[in-house]
C-alpha cells in the first residue's frame, strides 16, 4: 500500500458580538483581536508542534505529504510566521508537498449555494497562488463535503481531482484503495479512509488519510507519523497518487456526504431551525446581490458561511460554555440584517 497523508489546518475568523443596537452603526463583523488571539494560542500549543514535526520529517528522503490550509489559516500564518511560509513554498516547488485547494473561510456553502461556494473556492485559490506561486489542482473541500452537483463548479475552478470520504454504500463492492472517477466530469476522486487494518495495508493500492492536528491529540507527533510510515510501503503526495493510479471505477454521490468524525456530521451544520433560517437569509441576500450584478458582495457574504459559525448554532456541537446557540443565532441574524441594510439596500 502507498499512503497519501493529508494534514489539514484551519483557524476561523472570530465573529463580533452583534446586538440589535449595533445594526446600522458600522460595527465590524469580525473581531480581529480575538481572531489573532485564538490563532496565537492554538499556534503555540497545537499548530506549531505539528508544523515543525512535519517540516522535520520532510527533511527525510522517504517522507512526503499533502497539506491543506484554509484561507483564514494561511492569512494568519503568513502574518505571524512568514519564514514557515517560505519553507513550505520551497517544499511545494520541490515536489515534496502537494498543497491542496479548498475554501477561503472553511465554508459550508457547498451544502446550499453554488455561487457562494464558487467565490470561496476562487478566493482560496488566489491565496495559494499569492503565497506559494502555484495553482492548486486537487480540492479538499470543507469537511470533505461532496456530491455530484458540485462537479461543474469544481471543474470550472480548475480542479482535476478532489478528496472526499469513503462510504461503503457508494463503493458498490469496489475496493476503496484506489483512485475513482466522477460521473460525467473529468475529475478524479481520492477517498479518505479511517485507520487501516494491518493485513490490508500489505495489499496493493492507495490509502488516503487526513490528519487534523486540532482533532488529533498526539503526545508525540513525529512518533505517530513514523508509525504510519512503518505500516505503509511508501508515502506519496496527492499529485503523485493521481499520476500513479489511473481511475477505472466511478464514485457517484447523489446526496451530500462528508468527513466522518465524532459528534459532527454534515447534518450538524444545517439541521435545526436557527441554521436553516440563517441559510434562508443568506440565500435571499445572494439573490438580491445577483440581481444587482455586484460580485464583490457575494464574496463578502460568503464569509458568513464558515462551518464554525454553524456548529456554534447547534446544541450538539457548540463548544462555548458561556453562550447558547441562540445567542450566536441572534448575533448572526443581526449582522446579516446590518449587511442587508448597509450593502444590499443601497444597491442600484
Amino acid at each position: 500500500m502507498e499512503t497519501c497523508l493529508i494534514f489539514t489546518f484551519h483557524s476561523p475568523l472570530q465573529l463580533s458580538d452583534y446586538s440589535f443596537f449595533d445594526i446600522g452603526k458600522k460595527k465590524p463583523y469580525f473581531d480581529e483581536a480575538h481572531t489573532h488571539q485564538r490563532f496565537k494560542s492554538n499556534y503555540k500549543s497545537i499548530f506549531k508542534p505539528a508544523i515543525n514535526g512535519i517540516l522535520d520529517l520532510l527533511t527525510r528522503r522517504d517522507f512526503k505529504c499533502s497539506i491543506y490550509m484554509s484561507g483564514t489559516f494561511l492569512t494568519a500564518l503568513h502574518r505571524s510566521e512568514p519564514t514557515t511560509m517560505d519553507k513550505l513554498k520551497k517544499l511545494i516547488h520541490d515536489g515534496k508537498v502537494t498543497i491542496l485547494g479548498g475554501t477561503s473561510h472553511e465554508s459550508i456553502a457547498s451544502l446550499f449555494s453554488k455561487s457562494l461556494f464558487q467565490y470561496q473556492l476562487i478566493a482560496h485559490k488566489k491565496l495559494i497562488e499569492q503565497f506559494f506561486g502555484v495553482s492548486p489542482t486537487i480540492l479538499n473541500n470543507t469537511e470533505n463535503i461532496h456530491y455530484n452537483d458540485l462537479l461543474t463548479t469544481i471543474e470550472e475552478c480548475g480542479y482535476k481531482a478532489l478528496v472526499t470520504e469513503s462510504l461503503n454504500w457508494y463503493l458498490h463492492g469496489n475496493s476503496p484503495y484506489q483512485v475513482f472517477k466522477a460521473p460525467k466530469h473529468n475529475v478524479s476522486i481520492l477517498l479518505n479512509q479511517s485507520p487501516t487494518p494491518v493485513e490490508t495495508a500489505k495489499e496493493n493500492g492507495l490509502i488516503t488519510r487526513h490528519i487534523d492536528p486540532l482533532l488529533a491529540t498526539y503526545d508525540n507527533w513525529k512518533q505517530h507519523i513514523v508509525n504510519i510510515m512503518k505500516q505503509s510501503e511508501q508515502l506519496i503526495t496527492a499529485e503523485e497518487a493521481l499520476k500513479k493510479f489511473k481511475p477505472t471505477s466511478t464514485y457517484s454521490i447523489p446526496m451530500p456526504i462528508g468527513r466522518k468524525r465524532p459528534q459532527v456530521g454534515i447534518s450538524s451544520f444545517t439541521e435545526n431551525a436557527m441554521q436553516k433560517e440563517v441559510i434562508t437569509k443568506l440565500l435571499l441576500m445572494e439573490k438580491k446581490i445577483k440581481e444587482a450584478l455586484n460580485t464583490n458582495l457575494l464574496y463578502e457574504l460568503s464569509k458568513f458561511t464558515s462551518g464554525d459559525y454553524f456548529l456554534d448554532m447547534n446544541y450538539k456541537t457548540i463548544t462555548a460554555t458561556e453562550k447558547q446557540p441562540y445567542d450566536y443565532y441572534i448575533s448572526m441574524m443581526n449582522m446579516l440584517s446590518d449587511f442587508e441594510i448597509k450593502k444590499i439596500n443601497q444597491l442600484p
Binding site: F20, N272, A273, M274, K281, Y326, M333
Partner: peptide, 20 residues
C-alpha cells in the same frame, strides 16, 4: 429558547429580531 428553536418566526424570514 423554545421560541427561537421552534423556528416559528421563519414565516417572516429574516425580518424577525430577538434582542434578549
Amino acid at each position: 429558547k423554545q421560541l427561537i428553536e421552534s423556528g416559528a418566526y421563519r414565516s417572516v424570514s429574516g425580518k424577525f429580531h430577538f434582542t434578549g
